[in-house]
């Protein structure tokens, strides 16, 4: 039996990815997380001195705090299994990646373990965020100085 024949057998038996089911779950749970976030923005606008422009920061921090609690009690993992991208894409997923790595590496000490591994999973997001921001801003600057676009 060669590789190609085997591939056929494997593909036939391996259950297909439930695309539609996954998308619906991601939509509902991702949407729900954003709706909770939206309620928090109203909370900060009404009770604190935040406007719709500035409220993003405290909201993200609060959501990360909630993610920390869910992660610590082992619930975010269960949520992630159901929601997939629905719980990974919101900032709570970023929080979960950071917090779970921090808890996991506690046994290697606070400096080498927690400090060294806290961005093990989420680090690439920061790297690509900063790098892409640099290039996008640079391209925009070049286009503006060439007179193609305006700020």
């Amino acid at each position: 039996m060669d590789q190609q024949q085997y591939q056929q057998i494997e593909d036939k038996i391996t259950p297909p990815t439930p695309y539609l089911k996954n998308i619906i779950k991601a939509f509902l749970i991702g949407g729900l997380i954003c709706t909770i976030g939206h309620a928090i923005t109203y909370f900060y606008i009404i009770f604190f001195d935040f406007t719709e422009t500035t409220v993003g920061n405290p909201t993200a921090a609060t959501m990360v705090f909630l993610a920390m609690l869910l992660t610590g009690f082992g619930l975010y993992r269960k949520l992630g299994q159901v929601a997939g991208a629905g719980s990974a894409v919101p900032v709570t997923g970023f929080g979960n990646a950071v917090v779970s790595a921090a808890i996991e590496h506690k046994t290697e000490g606070l400096v080498l373990g927690v400090g060294g591994n806290i961005f093990k999973l989420a680090g690439s997001v920061i790297v690509f965020g900063v790098a892409s921001a640099f290039f996008v801003a640079l391209i925009k600057l070049i286009l503006v100085s060439m007179g193609v676009v305006e700020w």
């Binding site: 991702g30 949407g31 997380i33 954003c34 709706t35 976030g37 939206h38 928090i40 923005t41 719709e52 993003g56 909201t59 993200a60 959501m63 894409v89 919101p90 900032v91 709570t92 997923g93 970023f94 997001v125």
Partner: peptide, 8 residues
């Protein structure tokens, strides 16, 4: 609102 600020 949060529908755009909460996603990564």
């Amino acid at each position: 609102g949060a529908g755009a600020t909460i996603p990564i």
